[in-house]
């Protein structure tokens, strides 16, 4: 008798929380396509603001994509081999290195940015190029790649798989390309999505590191909030959502696929 009441209350509370979180988002996105926000939706829907955002900020979108792509390449090239070596070595030293790599997550982004400026700020060409921002993003996203690949490597017992391949005559590179990397793929994929998502959305670090010529999307957003009319800022937010949502959805799906596959694996094991 009491259960339905409890359930109803829980449902109501959950919906309330969802509304609290979602309504501002939806309103903001609606504002981006409303002709005049102060007159409300009655003023009609328009794509004008999105067009204006494109005109004003297209370069920030492209720069964000360029930095995210480059960041992905760098973290793949550094992170995957690093995770492999760490997983292979094991022991205390490996754990210390792993923790050190994770430090940039704990340290505030502003502090990292400051450290980068203090250290490299004098090299003018570097300071004003987008590569400066890239370095910050790599520092910040690398731990996510390393951790993600490490987790998968330790779950697939890759040492045994490698020994199996070696016993069949495979050289180190053959083992790496045909056995280790394909089986580590879920981790590499999850790490990649994480890196791209974080890089596209990163603000703290980037705000400190950017120059007027190297604005990324989030920095542009802050700029538009401060200086543009509300509809333009909202339309910009909408563009950001459209870019980031597929990435987040893919990340969720990948996570689910792994969770579904794992119990299946153990159940077929005798």
């Amino acid at each position: 008798m009491r259960k339905p009441v409890t359930f109803t209350l829980q449902l109501a509370f959950t919906l309330l929380v969802c509304a609290f979180l979602l309504v501002p988002v939806i309103l903001s996105m609606l504002a981006g396509v409303t002709a005049n926000f102060f007159q409300g939706l009655g003023s009609g829907l328009t794509l004008r603001w999105i067009g204006e955002v494109w005109g004003l900020y297209a370069d920030t979108i492209f720069l964000s994509l360029l930095i995210a792509g480059s960041c992905l390449i760098v973290t793949l090239v550094i992170g995957v081999p690093a995770a492999y070596v760490l997983a292979r070595q094991g022991g205390r030293l490996a754990r210390i290195i792993e923790e050190t790599i994770v430090l940039p997550i704990a340290v505030p982004g502003l502090a990292i940015a400051l450290a980068l400026i203090v250290t490299y700020g004098g090299i003018r060409e570097f300071r004003i190029s987008w590569a400066f921002i890239l370095v910050g993003h790599v520092l910040y996203t690398l731990p996510f790649m390393v951790r993600s690949v490490l987790a998968v490597l330790s779950s697939i017992r890759f040492r045994e798989l490698e020994e199996g391949a070696a016993s069949l005559g495979a050289s180190f590179w053959q083992r790496l390309w045909t056995v280790v990397l394909p089986n580590a793929r879920p981790g590499i994929l999850a790490g990649s999505l994480m890196v791209v998502t974080l890089s596209v959305g990163e603000f703290n670090l980037t705000w400190m590191l950017h120059t007027p010529m190297t604005k990324t999307l989030p920095v542009g957003l802050a700029d538009s909030y401060a200086s543009m009319r509300l509809e333009v800022a909202s339309a910009y937010t909408l563009v950001f959502f459209i870019m980031i949502m597929p990435l987040l959805a893919a990340m969720q799906m990948l996570g689910r696929e792994r969770r579904v596959r794992q119990p299946q694996n153990t159940s077929t094991r005798p």
Binding site: I156, R157, E160, L161, E163, G164, A165, T178, V179, P182, N183, R185
Partner: peptide, 10 residues
């Protein structure tokens, strides 16, 4: 032949 078989899951 390994105790865990070490077959390649991929």
């Amino acid at each position: 032949v390994f105790q865990s078989y070490a077959l390649f899951p991929n």
